[in-house]
Amino acid sequence: MSGESPALLAAESVSVALGGVGVVHGASLTLRPGEIVALVGPNGAGKTTLMRALTGLLAPASGQLLVGGQSLGGMTPRERSRRIAYLPQGHVFHWPMAVGDVVMLGRHPHADPFTGTTEADRAAVERALVATTTAAFAARPVTSLSGGERARVALARALATEAPVLLADEPTASLDPRHQLVVMELLRQAAHSGGGVLAILHDLTLAARYCDRVVIMDRGRIVADTAPAEALNPARVAAVFGVETVHVDIGEGFAPLLRRPL
């Protein structure tokens, strides 16, 4: 069904409606091991809705979602949560809990009420803290951190699940330039260690620089799903985003440079 190499996550003509209004129309995409894929598109294109459906938070009106070849809809929330880690927008923390405890929440899918925290949980949290360089403030209240630090903690929480699939909704939003690059490096690292990462991005340069493929959504439909240079060609960017761009050669690839709104 999903081709020769097994897809970690596959959507097959998925449509999603919110309050009776179609938001995503017939979207198909696959995520394979080792891949980091950008999901881009103008505001209101349906990116977050599609991602929430991929996470299992929204049931599609039609189409099929497969995780490792199994139907997502047929899984219990717990099975799902072990296979797909989701990092929502905003990096919200409602209580000033310690960073280490927050990251431990990523182990919730593996939690067993009778054994409590296991050695495996502690090891996974440690790896996530080290990977995101947040171990130094593991004991601090998460609400006392800066935006960049919070973003890394939020990512550490998602990484701690050690799920094969990571879906990240605007992981770089409202971060300073350095932290945007740090977060993208971390996501790429997570993908290259064998997982699959799908990230909603608004920065086309980050998408071009860090991702293996770029999926473009426009008014609820996927209009491109290919290598960054092809997906983000100036004609398509002009048609979808209404901006004029030029591709700047930066030695190791290209960067789309925004010139003016059309």
Partner: peptide, 20 residues
Amino acid sequence: AGSFRALTLGEDAAASLGVA
């Protein structure tokens, strides 16, 4: 109790962690 702890991250994140 465990669900309240996961809800610290908001409802979507808690749901993605397997909380009903």
